[in-house]
């Protein structure tokens, strides 16, 4: 779709990534040497059965967890040996999360939820309000600014979460089973939204175990037993 894609820079670069969990004396190697490049503007689905290591991969990509060995470069900087505060800054600026369970704060209105990343980025109040409104408009909820999550449907809540992921202009939108809690109509709704965002040039990484969902991406990366098995373009 986008002719310049081949030339686009690599924004996510995993090489030889291993992640070992220790529980007492038991060691479990969740990632056993993962190499993965994602270019700016790509729409990638990461697929795998449970226990394959895809959740660990998602945590590593999201800077929620640090690798045991190997390197992870995000937007040009090595995030391997950053401390908690620096990781927080990376999560704030470079990553927009969309979770399976929406993870909206129930006591806050839609726009207060959407402006959360901007609060931690130190954006002044008026600008936050403006940008949150624009992001909600973008996901088609321009009229629900003051509604609380409880007053919205599941699909609408997930769209609020997408608006929250968008609002900080991150390098990548990282969606973890975003349609797992949605009915089929809302699923289509949210997937269409991702496609629109992709068409507008956003980098999207979507983690799922459903192949129907993965088919919406340009490229599917299959993970099994802590290793990447295949990485192939989806036939359009």
């Amino acid at each position: 779709m986008s002719p310049s894609r081949e030339a686009a820079e690599v924004v996510i670069e995993l090489s030889g990534v291993r992640k070992v969990y220790r529980t007492g004396s038991i060691e479990f190697e969740a990632l056993r040497g993962v190499d993965l490049d994602i270019r700016r503007g790509e729409y990638v689905a990461i697929m795998g059965p449970s226990g394959s290591g895809k959740s660990t991969l998602m945590n590593v990509l999201g800077c929620l967890d640090v690798v045991t060995s190997g390197t992870y470069r995000l937007a040009g900087s090595d995030v391997g040996d950053l401390d908690e505060a620096e990781l927080a800054r990376i999560r704030n600026r470079e990553i927009g999360f969309v979770f399976q369970g929406f993870n909206l704060l129930p006591g806050l209105s839609a726009w207060r939820n959407v402006e959360l990343p901007l609060i931690y980025a130190g954006v002044p109040k008026d600008e936050r309000r403006e940008r949150a409104a624009v992001a909600l408009e973008r996901v088609g909820l321009g009229d629900k600014l003051d509604n609380r999550p409880g007053e919205l449907s599941g699909g609408q809540q997930q769209r609020v979460a997408v608006a929250r992921a968008l609002v900080g202009e991150p390098t990548m939108i990282l969606a973890d089973e975003p349609t797992g809690n949605l009915d089929s109509v809302s699923t289509v709704d949210v997937l269409n939204l991702f496609e629109e965002l992709h068409a507008a040039g956003r980098t999207i990484v979507l983690i799922t175990h459903e192949s129907e969902v993965a088919e919406h991406a340009e490229r599917v990366v299959r993970v099994r037993d802590g290793l990447i098995q295949t990485s192939e373009a989806v036939a359009a």
């Binding site: 908690e84 505060a85 999560r91």
Partner: peptide, 12 residues
């Protein structure tokens, strides 16, 4: 957890 994922540093 959510606030941290959205970029809240420990001191915040």
């Amino acid at each position: 957890g959510l606030r941290k994922a959205l970029g809240a540093p420990p001191w915040a």
